[in-house]
Structure formats: structure tokens, C-alpha cells
Amino acid sequence: MLHRHALRIALRATGALVAALLLAVSLLAAQIEESAEAEIVDLTLVRQAGVLQADFRLANALDEELMARIESGLPTTLTFQARLERPRRWWFDRGLGRSELQVIAMYNAVTREYLVNYKQDGSLIDSRVVQSREALVRAMTMIDDMSLASFEAPGDADPVVRVRAALGSKNWLGIVPTTVHTPWSTIALSEARAVPPSDPESRPSTLL
């Protein structure tokens, strides 16, 4: 009788454990990287008026599928993640700072315009309207002067800046959502070059 009771408890506990593990894995797997053909290229750092900025380009990202989605009027987001890290590969806590830039494109078929919004760390920093695909691709993939002002480097190490783009999501095994990322593109902080302040007029700004 005791054996039977113990077997029942063990079976129930096993079932509950399997289900809980499945759910936990699905949550964790939401952050699992998947390689894509897209990549971050031409990553450079500039320091303008003491403020660290990153310039880079996202290559091979906007394929026909993504363009079709944009032109259907659905909001489409590309997320650029920038991190300041210690150059220690196996260190458990390498992060020194992080920032995230979201580029959200939305097509207005009536006016035949693409509205591109830029949100950095949750705040809207810029908004552009472009009329052509080429301009849209430029607006979404060519990032100039991404501010990394919050990055503070300690004096005892030469940290690196890593950038990657999140292109969308897929489902692992059909049930576990995963984010499609580009590989990390890395540049040493020491490679940042200083430039003089630019003319505010030359920088794209809001249209209205």
C-alpha cells in the first residue's frame, strides 16, 4: 500500500517537474540566439564632445519578406543592442553598460510614406518619414551616432563595445519563441576616434 502511494506521488511529481521545466525552458529560450545571414558591419566608435557614439550598418537584413511585411503596413522593428563589456571571455559578469536602439518602420499606403521611429532605451529620440524603399533601407540599417553616453569604462581595463541586431522571432520546436539575432560585432573602446561637434542642421530631424 505504501509502495503504491509512493509510486503515485513520484509519478505526479515527475509530471509536474517535466511541465515546469518545459515552461521554464520556453521562457529562457526566448533569449536564445540564432544565427542569421544578416550582420553588423562597419562598426566604428567616435567620441564627439566627450560623448561616445557608435556608427554601424546592418547588412543583408531587409529581405523581401521583411519588406513585404513593412509595406503591408505592419509595424516592423529592428532592435540594435549595444553593450560595453570587459574583454574577459569567461568572466561571469562582463557587462559594464548596455543600450538598446529600436528602429520601428511603418508604411502609409495612402501617402506612400515610410515612417521610421527611433527609440533608445525606451525613449523616442527621432522620427523620420521617407518616401522610397532605398531611403527606408538606409534609415533602418545605417545607424549614425548611436549615443552610448551611459557607457562608463573603468580605468583598469580596456573594455569592448559589442553590437548586434535582433531581427525578429522564431519558434524553437514550434513552441518555444526565440529571437533571431545577428552575431555580435565587437570593437575596442580604445579605438574610438574623436571628432569635432557636427552642425545640428546636417543631422536628420523630425519632419513637422
Binding site: S26, L74, P75, T77, T79, I104, G122, A166, S169
Partner: peptide, 16 residues
């Protein structure tokens, strides 16, 4: 947190 629009989020959440 990724700033995805509500419709897409709803679809994603429903699917999830």
C-alpha cells in the same frame, strides 16, 4: 519592452 506594437505583441502572446 522591445517596443513592438500592440497587435504584433497580442499575436505573439496568443501564439505563445
Amino acid at each position: 519592452g522591445r517596443g513592438i506594437d500592440t497587435g504584433t505583441v497580442n499575436n505573439q502572446i496568443l501564439l505563445f
